[in-house]
Amino acid sequence: MTSSADHGQPSRSSAGPSLGEKIALALSRREVWISLGFLVLFLAIWEWLPPLAKIPPYILPPISAVFKEFFRLLHVENLFLHTGLTLIEVIIGFVLGSLLGMVVGYALGLSPMLEFVLSPYILALQITPKVAFAPLFIMWLGYTVYPKILVAILIVFFPVLINVLSSVRTIDPAMINLARSFSASRAQIFWKIEFPASMPNLFAGLRIGSTLAVIGIVVGELVGGNKGLGYLLVLGEGQGNTAMVFVTIILLTVIGILAYLAVILAERRVLHYMPERQIGPV
């Protein structure tokens, strides 16, 4: 929820050369102030409305209680450790899942035979809700970080795979012929034409994957384990500690935003050759 305000800023401030100038530019825009105002209003409503509407704190604690709980958890539950662990799992799951999706996507894209043979199974696996594998992986690998990372890999894998595959499949054949007319080898056609041509699609897949990675990790942690933010969610629920659940949700959102922003930053670097508007908003 709070992310709606954070969301608008990077795209608006991206035009300026230095960070200071970017911020100054952003603050000079009315929309930015309206957006920040919206955040303040939202927090105020969260703080004052539940007591006024006689909603008990175990249903909806005011934001101040959530803050208090945050600092309590820092001391009592070693919140940094849980957050850090979840963050690392998200990064590892995202990176491995993306790499796997890329490798399989390019392989299938380059070999129509392989694609024909494997596509029904890939489709079936894509329809399967990946989070349903979490209990299975925990049965196999125990209460370690591995089943969580495995769920994230599986869930990140598909959007990356599908996007890479479709880009290789839909590339303009005339572009391939151009490279062929220069007597390019198969490897050269891939590295000089197909691979760079797939970058916009790849990043579309990575954007989706970065947010799905968080879901995969959290579900893994919810199902089993005694570490990570997913575990804290279960713990908070068990204790009837609504504020703790909120703290965890907010931290998970922050991790998701960080992962997403990392992809956006990489995308801006890699796709620097594209007109700004085609890269699109954050």
């Binding site: 303009d172 572009m175 151009l178 007319s181 220069f182 007597s183 034409i193 041509a197 970058m199 594209m274």
Partner: peptide, 17 residues
Amino acid sequence: PNSHVAFMLQKDLLLPW
């Protein structure tokens, strides 16, 4: 394909990257 012959099409086929 060989290096004695080069072609040019209606589409410029410039690589955008």
